[in-house]
Deep mutational scan, measured.
Amino acid sequence: MAAGGDHGSPDSYRSPLASRYASPEMCFVFSDRYKFRTWRQLWLWLAEAEQTLGLPITDEQIQEMKSNLENIDFKMAAEEEKRLRHDVMAHVHTFGHCCPKAAGIIHLGATSCYVGDNTDLIILRNALDLLLPKLARVISRLADFAKERASLPTLGFTHFQPAQLTTVGKRCCLWIQDLCMDLQNLKRVRDDLRFRGVKGTTGTQASFLQLFEGDDHKVEQLDKMVTEKAGFKRAFIITGQTYTRKVDIEVLSVLASLGASVHKICTDIRLLANLKEMEEPFEKQQIGSSAMPYKRNPMRSERCCSLARHLMTLVMDPLQTASVQWFERTLDDSANRRICLAEAFLTADTILNTLQNISEGLVVYPKVIERRIRQELPFMATENIIMAMVKAGGSRQDCHEKIRVLSQQAASVVKQEGGDNDLIERIQVDAYFSPIHSQLDHLLDPSSFTGRASQQVQRFLEEEVYPLLKPYESVMKVKAELCL
């Protein structure tokens, strides 16, 4: 049975990233139509530049190519590739079939990587351009969430054990800070992308030097003109047959890092959902379990974690691919890159769409948070109580021993009897502590235990987050809708 299948058929496997999760716009960027249309555009740009620099290419040939950029006979191309065992030459023939007058000058002087690699770089750039505003929107939604809850005390956790208090907004800023680093890295790697350009079979530009009869300047002009037509500021000066596969490492490393950030955020949300302090959106008709109707599973956060793990592992592909590119190139890269580049971007696209949807509907339960604080705060307040007693004339050592005994009794009630923490009640009825009984409410005010959390939130948002989001103001209103 021949390899390949009808990918629109229910009898043929289709990647869930495309069929179930990723956005239509990201799927289109990695589609065959987008790819092969870009090949034709690159052939047109090459012909236009070659004509401008004096090669015998007519206006009629150029116009014929322009008129057929979208006229792609995919069936013919597939048949040609089956016959020739070469995808680029299959599309040269297919393009030439609908451009008979231009057929002889299509791909003039070029090698397969002229269309293959340059198209990949265009796709990487455009895919990054799709991700950047999506990530900015996630940051914006979380920034709104953090600002609104900047002063809401909550129990902090280290080692997932109760620690000092923080605020809900401050905790959210930990998430935002990681995503801001990801946004900066995505922008950097996007701006650092260079075009492969017009380089020939081993990167020496020998074929173009021959076409222009040894004119170095025209060869350099050709490279520059096509690079500018493709919208790049610069091209690699040095290439082998391909652009260095280190570029793929750079791009997928940034995406993998984004995956790590999203995994951490969504894990926190899942843990908070278990504590009943916070939940992701839950639709009115949504079913959490087929057997347990009360369940409210954090399905979206779980999906993000599941896909983020996949995204983090994909960076190993370009690392290994770059390491086995012998001399000017081997074909070890080809099949692998067809999979890992598309999957990385479709996965990143999915987790950003999902995280935006989550961040637009996060639900906080202040009463649950308050109750958990009441359970733990008495123990945390013991040092403040000791200091207040010393100020009232008591002995630190005597007070410490009193607190120690009462704390152990209260802990026994919590752990052995399943009761509430009654340390404060014990202190309130103990005559030894009568000098500070009137101060206990103040000493137990949760806001006095959150330090500068709310001020940190305000400063972080104003100095770091809002300036970073400013270039994306025009796209901030787009909502994230999930079908599944």
Score class of each variant (00 low, 15 high):
Ala235Val: 10
Ile62Ala: 05
Ser31Met: 02
Tyr466Val: 14
Val189Gly: 14
Gln409Ser: 07
Val324Ala: 11
Thr158Arg: 00
Pro378Ala: 01
Trp43Leu: 10
Asn353Ser: 09
Leu311Asn: 02
Phe95Glu: 01
Met225Val: 07
Ser301Phe: 07
Gln356Met: 02
Gln439Thr: 13
Ala110Met: 13
Phe282His: 14
His91Glu: 04
Arg190Thr: 15
Ala127Phe: 10
Asp6Met: 14
Asp441Asn: 02
Trp326Phe: 15
Glu250Pro: 15
Leu193Gln: 13
Ala2His: 11
Gly54Asn: 06
Arg374Pro: 07
Val478Ala: 13
Ile106Gln: 01
Asp430His: 15
Leu469Cys: 14
Asn185Gln: 07
Ile351Met: 10
Gln320Tyr: 09
Lys415Gln: 04
Gly451Thr: 04
Ser447Met: 10
Thr202Asn: 11
Arg296Glu: 13
Ala308His: 06
Thr313Tyr: 09
Ser454Glu: 15
Ala47Ser: 08
Glu328Ser: 07
Met89Gly: 06
Gln221Asp: 12
Leu44His: 01
Asp441Glu: 13
Leu406Glu: 04
Lys134Arg: 09
Leu406His: 14
Ile373Met: 13
Met292Asp: 02
Lys295His: 09
Glu280Asp: 11
Pro435Leu: 11
Leu314Trp: 07
Gly197Thr: 08
Lys82Ser: 09
Ala335Met: 15
Gly4Phe: 15
Arg329Ile: 00
Arg141Thr: 13
Val254Cys: 13
Gly288Pro: 00
Val189Glu: 10
Glu50Leu: 10
Leu209Lys: 07
Ala256Ser: 14
Gly214Glu: 11
Gln356Val: 03
Lys147Arg: 05
Gln356Glu: 13
Asp420Leu: 06
Glu417Leu: 08
Gln320Met: 02
Gln184Leu: 08
Gln164Trp: 06
Ser207Thr: 15
Arg296Asn: 05
Glu50Phe: 03
Thr267Ser: 10
Leu482Ser: 12
Leu352Ser: 05
Ile237His: 15
Ser15Pro: 13
Phe36Asp: 11
Ile424Phe: 05
Thr313Trp: 07
Arg188Leu: 10
Leu84Cys: 02
Gln416Phe: 13
His437Gln: 11
Leu440Tyr: 13
Leu183Glu: 05
Thr204Leu: 07
Glu70Thr: 13
Glu343Ser: 07
Leu255Gly: 08
Arg83Asn: 12
Arg329Val: 02
Val247Phe: 09
Thr267Pro: 01
Asp268Leu: 00
Gln455Leu: 08
Ala342Asp: 14
Thr382Pro: 05
Cys483Asp: 10
Gly451Ala: 08
Gln286Ile: 00
Ile287Met: 09
Asn274Tyr: 02
Phe236Gln: 06
Gln416Leu: 10
Thr58Tyr: 07
Ile238Asp: 01
Lys479Pro: 15
Leu252Thr: 12
Leu362Arg: 02
Arg234Phe: 06
Met316Val: 09
Ser474Lys: 05
Leu272Phe: 10
Phe30Ser: 04
Arg371Thr: 08
Cys113Glu: 14
Leu131Glu: 14
Leu362Gln: 06
Phe232Met: 13
Phe36Asn: 14
Gly156Tyr: 01
Leu362Thr: 07
Leu69Val: 03
Ser334Gly: 12
Arg452Asp: 02
Leu307Met: 13
Arg188Trp: 06
Phe95Met: 08
Gln63Arg: 02
Lys246Trp: 05
Ser395Gln: 12
Ala348Trp: 00
Leu252His: 13
Gln408Met: 05
Ile105Ser: 10
Phe28Cys: 07
Ser151Met: 09
Pro467Glu: 13
Leu275Pro: 03
Ala90Glu: 03
Val413His: 13
Leu84Lys: 07
Arg303Cys: 13
Asp32Arg: 06
Gln61Gly: 12
Met278Asn: 04
Leu131Ile: 12
Asp32Glu: 09
Asn353Cys: 12
Gly8Glu: 14
Ile249Val: 12
Lys264Trp: 02
Glu148Met: 11
Gln210Ala: 08
Ser207Asp: 02
Asp117Gln: 00
Lys276Thr: 09
Leu331Cys: 03
Gln356Trp: 05
Tyr365Gln: 04
Tyr243Asn: 10
Lys224Glu: 11
Leu311Arg: 03
Pro318Lys: 03
Gly156Trp: 00
Thr201Gly: 02
Arg371Leu: 01
Lys224Ser: 11
Leu352Glu: 11
Glu80Leu: 02
Cys399Ile: 09
Arg309Leu: 05
Arg459Val: 12
Thr111Pro: 04
Thr52Asp: 07
Phe460Met: 11
Lys229Trp: 04
Gly418Pro: 06
Ala322Val: 12
Ser257Asn: 14
Val254Glu: 08
Thr58His: 01
Pro435Asn: 15
Thr227Tyr: 14
Ser454Ala: 12
Met316Phe: 07
Gln458Met: 15
Gly5Cys: 08
Pro378Asp: 03
Gly8Cys: 13
Ile339Glu: 00
Leu252Trp: 06
Lys229Arg: 11
Glu417Thr: 07
Phe379Gln: 01
